[in-house]
Design a protein around this nucleic acid. Structure first.
Lengths: 142, 142
DNA sequence: ATACAAACTTGTAATGATTACAACTTAATT
DNA sequence: AATTAAGTTGTAATCATTACAAGTTTGTAT
């Protein structure tokens, strides 16, 4: 179990500094992201919360995710076009997508170990790594 | 100037093995990608070729790019949602997008230098790296 | 507590990229 | 030259996302 008190404090602080209110709907979206670490799409979030909040609108989910992204509380994953995904993990890590089952796995990366050339004089703010292939589970089933 | 003869031979071979014909339109799309190394969108390709081939349809460009992607002759870049881009460079390299001017730069990467954890037992087929920040040109103008 | 203003939610409509489809055209093969 | 598979094109359909406007909630100042 994670330390919810510290987490909530962090959340409210980040939101306050961006003049964003933590409404009931937004709290539920954050809760969904925290409990379902599957890098969900808007559709998945919508389906997941629909039973609990039948009036919840997709527009609100989009609005919420955009607000949370601007506040730095969630990260956008653009692994493939046509399926924007959202990640509540905001520290540096990589993503692997299995082309067989579609699942997205996290992996740990030492970004500083990477040997690169051609970015002298560039100011780098974000570094994203997307791998793809076959996950162990799907390799077994072949 | 690149060795066009060898390149064309490589192209026709790859297409033949996939039962894909190298039509006039497809040749022009390839030529555009070769001469305009800007990781263009479909819209940019369409605009760029419209004067020369007024009858060219966007559907053909989509069809062509999908066929070339399946044959491995071009790579799809999904840096941000809502702007699929195409790259004629198919060797391993990274992409940097300047958030100020929007330009996408290539950079060289030694993929094997990367220290990662959590992918034991995974079969990795592709490794994409997307960086973003400010390019030197835009830093000057501040 | 009350009132006000700013922020939020929601449903519907608009947008924009991509794909589906069907009729017609082109190209490779016998 | 005939046949057949593949390609092209314009239009319509699809789907994710955003725009918008009306009503609702929340925080703050009085």
């Amino acid at each position: 179990m994670s330390d919810m008190r510290a987490k909530m404090e962090d959340i409210t602080n980040k939101l306050k500094s961006n003049n964003i209110r933590l409404s009931h709907q937004r709290l539920k979206v954050l809760e969904y992201l925290d409990h379902n670490r599957i890098h969900p799409t808007v559709e998945q979030i919508y389906e997941g919360l629909h039973d609990e909040i039948p009036t919840l609108s997709k527009t609100t989910i989009y609005n919420t995710l955009n607000a949370l992204t601007e506040s730095g509380l969630v990260k956008v994953l653009t692994i493939e076009d046509n399926e924007t995904r959202y990640d509540i993990r905001t520290d540096a890590h990589g993503h692997f997508k299995c082309t067989a089952c579609g699942e997205i796995y996290d992996f740990e990366v030492n970004m500083d170990s990477l040997e690169i050339q051609g970015l002298n004089g560039f100011r780098v703010y974000s570094r994203d790594m997307y791998f793809s292939g076959i996950c162990p589970k799907c390799m077994e089933q072949e």
